[in-house]
Design a protein around this nucleic acid. Structure first.
Lengths: 202, 202
DNA sequence: GTCTATATTCCGATAGAC
DNA sequence: GTCTATCGGAATATAGAC
């Protein structure tokens, strides 16, 4: 918290990320961010002009760490099935370690869609298109069943991310403790890919 | 808005639902609810004591309309594949008509998990268990591949709901207009079920 | 850069007339 | 039941000393 190695600015950003991810823009309190950073409110405004500005900083930071991670696997020249296995495995692992991220991103995406537009179109779209072309070719060559690459992509992302958004419901509905839930997520790291592959394999 | 057929209380509830679903508890403003209902702030407090009370009203109402809808299909004695087809078809149709519902529910579930506990355990859990048993039996009889009913349920719910949460991203990522997106969702009403069935069919 | 103290704005809630 | 006017608190933001 007051580790002298981290600068005040870093301390603020860490605290702000924690609070904003948990409470959202409207729910977050500058006082709580100050407390968690071990400083006082006035300093927040000294470093970042306003709450909104600080929030936008956190949003860019969150997107900036997630998008590149998405790209990494998408653009390798792996076999389609192997790529699906790695995508699922790494995405679930990442979300497991950043459990507040999905809800935060989903809210922000819906609150301010334009913000994502630039980042996505300029950075991720080409890589996504590569993946979609790979799917389309596999279909054309009869190597997988006829499946829309758009639908496949939605299915993949859905199964990777949604269980974390619905965690409280799934825990109750399936009667799982927190540890058991985490264990189910570990299983998903391999099982979701196999589920998908069985669905599209000829 | 000021349709004399609807009582003031109904007008408030409709307006409150619209605003709370869009902005959430912290983001919603009593003033905006009053404006949309065509009345003034004081009346809100006359009918419902506080903002929190009004919000809880909306939450119960939302859950009350969604849970029974979930139950309807789960507890029929249809063939497993046919049940999956109907589940997917009806859930996607419902969410299409209530596009703010998923984000609202997901936020509320994570903000206040205990609230769902009662409703879910008492009402939905038994029906869910029926479905899970049906899956387990199909596995035992070798009619479908060995698959965990918990994982299957998560996959199903994920593919049904998540595309609506990620709509802004998917639209940009896949280059879809609002109409094209809606069309993709229509396709999903049948395709998601077939996707699942191919994945579990022996 | 960091603090205390204070100004300012916003918003939920209430008082009281009609 | 419905309104106008206002209170009171909370939260963002700023002033100014150190």
């Amino acid at each position: 918290m007051d580790d002298p190695k981290r600068s005040t600015e870093e301390l603020i950003l860490e605290a702000a990320q924690a609070v904003f991810l948990e409470k959202g823009l409207a729910g977050a309190r500058m006082q709580e961010i100050a407390d968690r950073a071990g400083i006082n409110k006035a300093l927040l405004h000294y470093y970042f002009r306003s709450k909104d500005k600080l929030f936008e900083m956190i949003v860019s930071q969150a997107i900036g760490t997630i998008l590149p991670r998405m790209l990494a696997v998408l653009d390798t020249d792996l076999d389609l099935f192997e790529k699906i296995r790695r995508l699922v495995n790494e995405y679930i692992a990442f979300v497991s370690r950043n459990s507040f991220m999905p809800l935060f991103i989903v809210n922000e995406v819906n609150r301010n869609p334009q913000f994502f537009f630039k980042s996505l179109v300029q950075q991720e779209r080409p890589h996504l298109d590569t993946f979609r072309r790979q799917v389309d070719e596999a279909v054309a060559q009869g190597r997988i069943r006829p499946v829309s690459s758009a639908q496949l992509l939605m299915n993949l992302m859905s199964m990777v991310i949604f269980p974390f958004l619905g965690k409280p419901v799934f825990q109750v509905a399936l009667g799982l403790s927190a540890e058991e839930f985490q264990l189910e997520m570990e299983r998903r790291r391999t099982e979701v890919a196999e589920f998908i592959i069985r669905a599209i394999r000829v």
